Amino acid sequence: MARPSNRRPGYSRRAQYGLFFGYVAAVSGAVVALLLLILSTVDPNGFGALRGAVSDATLPVTSAGRWVVEGVMDTGGSVGSYINATGKVRTLEAQQKASATKLIEARALAFENMRLKRLLGISEQGLRPVAAGRLVGSTGSSIRRYAILNAGYLNGVRGGMPVRGPGGLIGRIASAGAASARVALITDGGTVVPVRRVPDGTPAIATGTGDGFIDIRALGAENATFKRGDVFVTSGAGGVYPPNVPVAIIAKATRETFLALPVADPARLDFAIVEPVYQPQVEEQRRALPPPPGQ
């Protein structure tokens, strides 16, 4: 036969003991509370001594609990300090990156100013430039080497005019459109420039090879030899290119060939100026004229 599910506590001896001890505890607590109340009324001093004894007895437990609370608070403070320190470190790192970026921008601006000053110095020392523009593109197909300049015949640019940068000669205008022009670089296979070696003035011809180099060949001197590091500038012979413009530096020298690299690498340039075609007779006449009044 199954046991009923709604058994009363009286059926369990354990439950009876539990109720009994519960009643005893409740009655004992009430009696103790009543005695303490009576003691505090009749003998306040005795009640104070008893309360002090109870405090002394519970001191270790209270101290332990306080230590736990302080430990938790210290841990929370440490965690907060760590979070704050991490935030400050991240802020300092961000400030450092921002400072590094500004430093790079300042250096880039200084380099740009220096380069523009060099370009301005060229225009002041040489012929008055026809136009200044930016090299916006280049081609490297076959042996033809061209660059695109964002200045055209509306700016006065015409075919055949020399183009130079801050470092030296870049090339020559091959064709000009309304707002752009195609520049045949000095490394182009069809570009020939009369040059001379610095400082002895040995004449030579610089011809583009189409692969980034310039072939230097002595002119009118069979026994003339060049060595690595020799610098060549335009000679001005035949016109077109004004004299004393840096052109190339010998990079590879053999018994038969002398290969040079351009002083002004078009791949590293962005700005260039276009100058009028150099005419030796006109230039000599201009220099022979007396300076204008006030100069």
Results as ranks from 00 to 15, higher is better:
residue 200 D to Q: 11
residue 1 M to S: 12
residue 8 R to Q: 13
residue 250 I to F: 10
residue 253 A to E: 09
residue 233 V to A: 04
residue 231 V to D: 06
residue 40 S to K: 14
residue 121 G to F: 02
residue 129 P to H: 15
residue 163 V to H: 06
residue 92 L to D: 11
residue 24 V to M: 02
residue 210 G to N: 07
residue 241 Y to H: 06
residue 158 R to V: 02
residue 209 T to W: 11
residue 209 T to I: 14
residue 105 E to Q: 11
residue 94 A to Y: 08
residue 106 A to C: 10
residue 79 V to E: 12
residue 215 D to E: 12
residue 218 A to Q: 05
residue 230 D to T: 08
residue 144 R to C: 05
residue 61 V to R: 08
residue 12 S to E: 01
residue 72 V to K: 15
residue 197 R to V: 01
residue 108 A to R: 13
residue 48 G to Q: 09
residue 258 F to V: 06
residue 64 A to L: 07
residue 293 P to T: 03
residue 76 G to L: 15
residue 22 G to L: 11
residue 79 V to T: 13
residue 146 Y to A: 01
residue 274 V to D: 07
residue 19 L to R: 09
residue 67 W to T: 04
residue 117 K to V: 03
residue 181 A to D: 01
residue 221 A to T: 07
residue 96 Q to V: 14
residue 252 K to L: 13
residue 265 D to Q: 06
residue 273 I to E: 05
residue 78 S to D: 08
residue 71 G to N: 12
residue 214 I to T: 08
residue 20 F to H: 14
residue 69 V to M: 12
residue 151 A to N: 02
residue 283 E to R: 07
residue 101 T to K: 14
residue 212 G to R: 00
residue 59 L to H: 00
residue 153 Y to F: 15
residue 87 G to H: 11
residue 17 Y to M: 11
residue 149 L to H: 10
residue 75 T to P: 00
residue 48 G to C: 03
residue 167 G to C: 04
residue 263 V to D: 02
residue 287 R to V: 05
residue 89 V to Y: 15
residue 217 R to S: 08
residue 165 G to N: 04
residue 37 L to M: 02
residue 235 S to H: 04
residue 49 A to L: 15
residue 8 R to K: 15
residue 227 K to C: 00
residue 262 P to F: 10
residue 3 R to E: 10
residue 266 P to D: 13
residue 6 N to I: 13
residue 152 G to N: 04
residue 9 P to S: 07
residue 138 S to C: 00
residue 287 R to M: 10
residue 219 L to N: 00
residue 203 P to H: 09
residue 185 L to T: 06
residue 206 A to R: 01
residue 114 M to L: 07
residue 131 A to T: 09
residue 163 V to C: 08
residue 143 I to S: 12
residue 96 Q to W: 05
residue 105 E to S: 06
residue 216 I to H: 01
residue 7 R to K: 15
residue 232 F to E: 07
residue 130 V to N: 05
residue 268 R to N: 05
residue 201 G to R: 05
residue 260 A to V: 08
residue 258 F to H: 12
residue 114 M to Q: 10
residue 142 S to A: 14
residue 287 R to I: 01
residue 199 P to H: 03
residue 37 L to G: 02
residue 5 S to M: 08
residue 23 Y to N: 10
residue 127 L to N: 14
residue 204 A to R: 06
residue 207 T to C: 04
